[in-house]
Design a protein around this nucleic acid. Sequence first.
RNA 1: GACCCCGUAGCUCAACUGGAUAGAGCAUCCGCCUUCUAAGCGGACGGUUGCAGGUUCGAACCCUGCCGGGGUCGCCA
Length: 620
Amino acid sequence: MAKGDCTDAGGDCWITRFPDQAPAGPNRAFERRLMQDFIAILSARLVGAFERLGFDPKWARAQPADRPDLADFQCNGAMPAAKSVGEVPRAVAERIVADLAEDPDLAEANCAGPGFINLRLSDAALTRRAEQIAADSRAGASYVAVPRRIIIDYGGPNVAKPMHVGHLRATIIGDAAKRLFRFRGDEVWGDAHFGDWGFQMGLLIAALAEERPDLPFFDPALRDEYPVESPITLEDLERLYPLAAARAKEDSASRDKARRATAELQNGHPGYRALWAQMAAVSRTAQKREFGALGVEFDFWYGESDADPYIPEMIEDLAHKGLLVEDQGARIIRVVRAEDKRELPPLLVVSSEGSAMYGTTDLATIVQRSRTIDPDLVLYFVDARQSDHFEQVFRASDLAGYLQRDQLEHIGFGTMNGPDGKPFKTRAGGVMKLHDLISQAVDKAQARLDEAGIGEDFSPAERADIAHKVAIAAIKFADLQAVRTTNYVFDLDQFMSFEGRTGPYLLYAAVRIRSMLRKLRESGNESGPIILSDPRERALVLRLDAFDAALRSAYDKRMPHFLCEHAFTLAQAFSAFYANCPILEAPADLRASRARLAEVTLRQLLLTLDLLGIEAPERM
RNA sequence: GACCCCGUAGCUCAACUGGAUAGAGCAUCCGCCUUCUAAGCGGACGGUUGCAGGUUCGAACCCUGCCGGGGUCGCCA
């Protein structure tokens, strides 16, 4: 259950709590029947009409109208249906419209243009749906038909490096997906999958061995009794890694040394193992803090190293199945297929040095997950540039009979660029640390709050909390709003402009509703039956109804931007309503109705934001 | 070179996968605060959807060819 759902007792959720009409317990069949949005309802009616008239019902789909001046919903299916049987589109549309004529939910059904079917809902139907959403703790959201067991692999921090802006997308998008899949009813595990077992560890070990050979880890006489307190600090790691990586790139001798150290670590060198454990711990502590600042938690804080115990057996198994091939001193699996347009390189399982590569650990992680969780699906939220790598691993898994190809999905995404359109860099030209980025955003938020004189009478702690929430909302919303697969421009000033389509706008919208409902409560007002008396109220209810479609799109396509779109259009619809429909001064019945509309809007908005990983303050 | 992604208003991005008049937000301009938080609302301006063909009732979307940008192409992750 999502955190901001407001169904649990406690917290300041009184405003949004409603008695749930559904029976207690997970009676999903009941809820599914209850919770149909208009797209589902109207599509079902259209399917009936198409079938009665002898047309393929696959075209019978309702969708929100492109022309709100003409309709609430439309169906374009008469045109392709007519085409398939060689009839006149307009005539087909007219027959379908005639079939729908008696529907009591429709105030209007007619055809327009070459064969569009326009549907206008009756106020009664709209009011009924509004009450239904208002009475639902999930604000009108449906569940998936068949829940699945799903592992979501995201974040992917590297032990050797501090988290930087490159990790932002993987973390934010993956976390939003985790929340969404869980909310829709799947059983979901999020795994950070730390990069803690590859060449980067060998690089660090080799670099340390050179810089501080006196450390006990490098004493061959010593077998245990290594220091309990880490002599290595986070600063050491951050300083050493770039140096070592740069040197290995140019100097093949130091690269070979690091590769040997990698292999020795993996083969059980006691000193290296002890050193590794301390570096991993130091780094993990720091990274948990970074994730914490972003409000991101994992169910598993596993790393590549956790797959290590599965590797020997896996290699044996692969060899036994005849998949492993010796090639240039390495052991590989060939994954090419006849239909490939371009030759896919083989998956490297054992390097010529005898070490595990990242393909090895990824494949072994599949074995591990298959044994421990037995998931129906594993989603990898990793940069699109690694698509070839995942294709190799997934094919290898399929060939070896671990998880099937269709149980594994790489959800790639574009890179985050700077305002110049090139990969994001600091002014000095380096990679910006996540920590610095967040601090910058918080400072900017704080400055803007001061400037606007917001929360002058709040405690410093609350002000700091608000600034942090505004900063995180700005960063996350900007990221999630961009279509996942494309690159986007990271422009903090724009995200922090506090105007228009931004996270802060949404927080503001939510806070404003909260504040108004607080006032209503203080003056003893209750919410009551919904009455649609103004076009803005009608438009707002249509937006509320569109929530489930946004959830389904975001879920099916693994594209959180549909949720952003929904949050924004909902907030916009509410703002228009708010600006034009007075509540406190309205007559009693309208006041009660509008209070209920405000309550349900708030609940749905907070829910949507929560699914995006965005938390709104109580006031600001 | 081969193979993927992208090219839409001055800028940043949408467009429910082939449908109507291509939509938002910035920016610019014009109205709204003695009225529930103006981080807001209403309106205006802004387009040969990179270019050229093709497919059909209909194309930003599908096919072909160019032009431009990004990415990937076995012992890094």
